[in-house]
Nucleic acid binder design. Structure first.
Lengths: 135, 135
DNA sequence: GGTACGATCACGGAGCGTTATCGTTT
DNA sequence: AAAACGATAACGCTCCGTGATCGTAC
């Protein structure tokens, strides 16, 4: 195993998060450090960094921290043991939810890009119906 | 002119926003109703609805409400008068900022989609480097 | 032994959701 | 006159940012 440990600063930098955010994710049960120094410094391992990167990557899914925690916990267990049918369903459900949110985000993103170009156009350069009412 | 007016409920529904959000946007100076009834009900016109739709469309830019207000104000003035060089710069700056944010969002969205598929894969089905450290 | 770096409160703020209470519209 | 709709506080919540004050690492 790789026993190398890191302090919160390096971990946060590598994960692209602030110290505050890393600590917050610990508070809400998303990612806990693998240990502490004598003096109380948080100690992280590579797996913790990967976890933080995963959490950060999943943020655009819009899942709540509780849902994210469940999702990660289920996925973790799925790698070591066989999930019960119930848990498999819950995992699939969360993944479906995440995908759905991402689809919506993608649409909103495209709409936003269009809206920005409308604002940037010299008046009447682009079609009027660029900003539509939602379905 | 089109003198038709609407109450907040219909406007909110058409714009895909909650009543709370529409009122909030008024509080922060984004979109104000064109008038009020005797009893105090907010009255909106078509232009107000369009404004709300635009605000909603621009939300994924991540611009703050103040920035959005500035952007819309500048754009409004640009349609009726010639902007000063300073204002033209500020407008261009805000648009550039919006586009930059959208680019970042697009990347994060793609990364999130990849991360979800990683979680969905039956372990070792997808490349390991799916979740990368940020630049 | 100094200078980075980290820990723990604690307050703040954006962007709304959510009652609760009361008035308006039609 | 009742059913639907709206107004105004005011508190709550999430996801952190921002000090302040103090201890730790090396």
């Amino acid at each position: 195993m790789d026993g190398t440990t890191y302090h919160i600063g390096e971990v946060a930098t590598r994960a692209g998060l602030s110290l505050r955010t890393v600590r917050y994710y610990e508070d809400v049960g998303l990612v806990a450090p693998s240990g502490r120094t004598e003096g109380g410094f948080r100690l992280y391992r590579e797996t913790d960094v990967k976890r933080l990167l995963l959490v950060r990557a999943l943020k655009p899914t819009g899942l709540s921290v509780e849902e994210l925690a469940q999702l990660l916990a289920l996925h973790d267990r799925a790698t070591s043991e066989e999930l019960s049918a119930v848990d498999q369903d819950r995992l699939a459900g969360l993944l479906a939810q995440a995908r759905q949110r991402l689809r919506i985000e993608r649409e909103r993103l495209i709409a936003a890009e269009l809206a920005v170009e409308v604002l940037a156009a010299p008046a009447g350069q682009l079609p009027e119906a660029a900003v539509r009412e939602p379905a």
